[in-house]
Each structure stands twice: as C-alpha cells, then as structure tokens.
Design a protein around this nucleic acid. Sequence first.
RNA 1: GCCCCCGUAGCUCAAUUGGAUAGAGCAUCGGAUUUCUAAUCCGAGGGUUGUGGGUUCGAGUCCCGCCGGGGGCGCCA
Length: 587
Amino acid sequence: MFSIKTSFGEIEFLKPNNFKYADATSNIAFKLSKEIRKNPIVIANEIVNEIKNNDAFEKVENINGFINVFFSKKFFIDFVMRIIEEDFISKIEKKQRFLIEFVSANPTGPLNIVNARAGAIGDSLVRIGRFLGNEVLSEYYVNDEGSQIENLGYSILWRLGIKFVLKNGIISILNNVEMEKIEILEIDGKILDMSESVYKGSYLIEISQLIKEEVMDKISQYSGKEGDLDKIRKIAYEIGKICAKYILSWQLETLRIYRVEYDNVVKESFIRNSKYPKIVLEKLKDHLYLEDMEKNKYKLEEKELEKLLNREYYVKNYGGKALVLKTTIYGDDKDRVLIRSNGEPTYFFWDIAYHYYKIERIGNGYIINLLGPDHYGYVPRLKSALKMLNFENIQVLIIQQTNLIQEGKKLDMSKRKGQIYEMNELIEEVGIDASRFFFLLRSPSAHLDFDINLAKKLSSENPVFYVQYAHARIESIKEHAKTVGISIDFNRKYLENYNFENERHLLVLSTYFEDNLKKAFYGLEPHLLVYYLLEVVEAFHKYYQKHRVIDIEDKNSTISRIIILEAIRKIINKGLELLGVDAPTKM
RNA sequence: GCCCCCGUAGCUCAAUUGGAUAGAGCAUCGGAUUUCUAAUCCGAGGGUUGUGGGUUCGAGUCCCGCCGGGGGCGCCA
C-alpha cells in the first residue's frame, strides 16, 4: 500500500485490477464526491495537479475519476535497496497485542485433517502478525476435564478387557473379559451397555498397552473394596486423565513436526483450580438467576458466590435449580446455564473463566479464536459473557467444514466410530510443505472436500513447488554468476545506470507485499498471502523465460538484475516462511 | 420453525472488502529447451457470477424474496 499526503487528506493507493492502467490507483475522488458534493473528475484533477511532481511518480493521470500513477525509477531503486539493506516492513505505528487460540483438540484422539487445516491457518496468522510488528501469543487449550475424560477411561478399560462389577456395595474387577460386547459396568446383576460413549479408534489399543501398568496399579487399589457407582466413575476418570495426558503429548508432537509451536498450552484443569472461576462469578453476579426444571425463575440471593462452586453446598442449597446467565441481554437467543442443578458447572462456565484469564494477559489487546463450524452457535453466548466482563475485542474465525472424501464418498470423521484420517498420515503421505500450502490455498470460510486419493497426488502436483522453484531458480542464477566470475555487489550505484523496463512488472507487484500481509492478518485471511506469492512467482517465471539475466558482456546490467532479483527472492523467502513452508535453494 | 455459512469456467478455488474488460490452477487441444534448472514458458476453447427485484456514478460483493448444498439451535463438550 502506498499513501501520500494531500490537501484532501492522506490518500491511499491500491493495487489496480489491471496493470495496463496503472501501477497503483485511487478511487478517492468518487468517495469524496459524495461528501463534498463535487464532480469526481474535478476532484481527481485537483489531486493530480497536487501530486504530479512527486519524485516517486513517473506519470500521474486522471482517467474518468480514477487517479492512476506509475512509479518512477527512483521509487523502484529506493524500494529495492530498502528490501536488500533493511527489514522490508515499514515501522508499524502502534504495536498491538493478540492472543490466537487454535486447534485446541479434545485429548481423546489423534489430530485429524480438520486440525491440520486449523493448524496451518492459525500458525500462519501468528507468523504474519509477528512479522508486522505485533505481539502475538499462540495458545492451545486442552479440555482435560469433563465427561469425555470419563468415557476415555472406559474406553481404555474396554481395550484392556477389564470390567467392573458392583454387587452388594463391593467393587470387583474382572480381567480378560471378551471385547466383543462393550459392557464395562455390571451393577447388581444388571449390565450397563456403554456402546455409545466408548471411543473405538484403534489408536487406543496402542495407548492402552502403553499405560497398562499404571492402569492395573490404579485398579488393584479398588478391587474388593466398598464402593458405589460414583466411586467407579471416579476410577474411570482417573484412568481417562492418564490417557489424555498421553494423547496431548502426541498431539503437540504432531503439531511440532508440522512446524506449529505454541507459546502456551492451557489446561482446563488449571482453570478449574485457579482463582478465575470465582472472579468471574463475582463479576457476573448482576446477570445471574436460578431456574428450575419447569423454567420457573428465581432470584439468586447469595452473598458468598464462591460457595456455589462447591458441589455439595450447591446441591444442598439450590438443588433442583440451575444457575443461569442472562446472555440474552447482549444478543444471544437464550440464556445459558452456568451451573447445573446437580452442582456441576458447565463447559461454558469454565470457558468464561478461561477467557478471563486470556483477558488478564492481553489487557486491551485482541482475542482471536479459531473454531470449527460446529461451534457456531456457541459464539454469541461467549461474546455476550465477555461483554458483561467489559471486553469486546474478540474475533472468532469459524473455519468451515472439512469433509473427507474417499472413492467419491464422504467419510464420517467421528472419533467415537474411530474412522479418521490422521494428521500424521497426511504429513507422511503429502509432506509438510504441500499440506500446509494446500490448506492455505482456500479461504477459511470455504467448505473443503478433502479427497484422500487426491491428497496422495498432491505431493507432486501442489502449486507450492511452483513458488519454491522460483526461489531455487534465483539462487541458481546467483550461483551461476559466481562461476562466470561476476561478483555480486549490492550497491545502488549499479541501479542508477540501469533501465528497469523488463523488470518493471515484477517490481510493481513486489511493492504490494506489505499491503498484502496486512490484509491477510487483520482480515484473518492468510490465503491472500498464498495467492499473492503465486502471482509474484508467475511474473518471475515469465520474466525468466523471456530475458536472460547474466550477460558477461554487460556487467553493470547483470549486477543490476541480480540485485533486483535478490529483492524478489527475499520477498518469496519471507512469504514462504510466514506460511511455514521451506524455501529451498536447490530443487 | 429460527439463526449462520456457501453457491463464480467441466472440476477445485480467487477477485484488493462497493471500482475499470470477473481471474488462476487442474482437465482438454496445439506449440517452445545447442542458453542462468522444462517442477518452466507461449497459445486456444470454456461465464447472463443459482434466480427475481432493489440501493447508486458503479454490484460477484450491500438490502429483500425465492431455489439448491452444508451447519447450529442441550442443565453435552
């Protein structure tokens, strides 16, 4: 983006649709014409007269109200040298803080394609945001509590062929139970079928073997002891916790290989035991009420709000009623339960506490959450709750649905059924560069059909190689220059005597790098950077085909061209780095 | 039923957030290397932007209605 001060204010020039008309263009005259009630063509003329002598321009014209400019040689030389000599982003005016949370998969199974997509998008946003000079924190949230953990525990028991039997208040444990039927509990002769809640993915075979000793150890403490259903659930929960810890470490390792590293990993268990739940209850107290199963509402009269978090206290004093937050006052379609009538707080409640922890760390910065489409309905209640906490700088990027296609048919990706295509498989079969690039090739808001057969082909047909090849080619030119005895001296004096005609288009495109990064980051659309890079390297490949760079007869021009291409190379290199993709020097 | 996202070339997707003649890749067909890497380049065909209206200098983009696809609407997470 190029902007210039005039008596009409700061005018921003944009990339034209077609470079035949201009290197950069402004439609400011149309916008001003409404405000100051003047013919746009007249306004454009006044602006043209004002800026036409600026030494950044070779030509400035008014075409039907569009102000079109062509850059001068001096402008290009300054631009190239700035990239070569300095960091090429102009200093950002105000550094802002961002906290970006992404992937945050449940610790109940390996990461899948959807997570890989979120990982690529989130991580690139983090990288671009930092490069623009902002302070960006990346975060992974782990739901290591809740009913899914209990289910995970049962799943492990099932895989290990273990069954609990509860008879006359005594817990006994059966080993080596046949696994065909899923029945983990037997209460006084009655069998509890848990087919719906057990995770059936084959990854649990491996984990169950890994943690077998720990599990057996845990169970033996309870065998033959007195107990009840709650006690058995507690055992399952503890086993689930052990399993979740393993799965989390697998997930983070997969992400690390994928070049995604987090500043923080925040666990729900940490939030539950922190000061934040209490603080949040206190701050939300004016918007709370009680509701029974018949939807009758009652006023909450409680002085010591933190007592509500004690389950027994809650049941004793408010049993049969849920604690509800009036999220409708800020646009939610219904009020939401924070504490169930059984005294158990909801996921939503813990999530508000977690967000308070986020707010505490970023102050007046911005929170960005990347979520899957199934969380869409969740957004209004979260925003509403945060507004009650006086925080509104939250943006939620919904990454649209990703379908898995195999042999033309949609696959069900549910973890419970165990039919998933793992992120690990993707990395192995397609490669990191190609898969990251692939996911960044479409807008986050676009649905994506991920065809497994196509993915395997991707490793050779991915446009990422088109970009990488351009980078390698420029390196190769520099290498060749050395072998023919041309030493590259990055000095602007060579450029002063060079005619930029053939490189013009390439340079004009390059000037939009920074503009593009800003759009990609602040608009949460990292795919724009991908399309930009493709445009730049296409221009390069065309240039390369048509013009020879090294000419031993004309060293000045040769060195000038190499300086220009080095600037282009730095842009490609930086662009790829921001996408988390390698920039090879040879291919 | 209510709310949200999507609908652009045969397929997968872009389109500077309201700008000039809607663009790429793949696929199809035809060409280009004694040269710094052919993972490249040049050319051809392919469109009433789902549809009907509206807003204005100007609409793929904004508003309203329809059609089609997907998702969300729990004291689940």
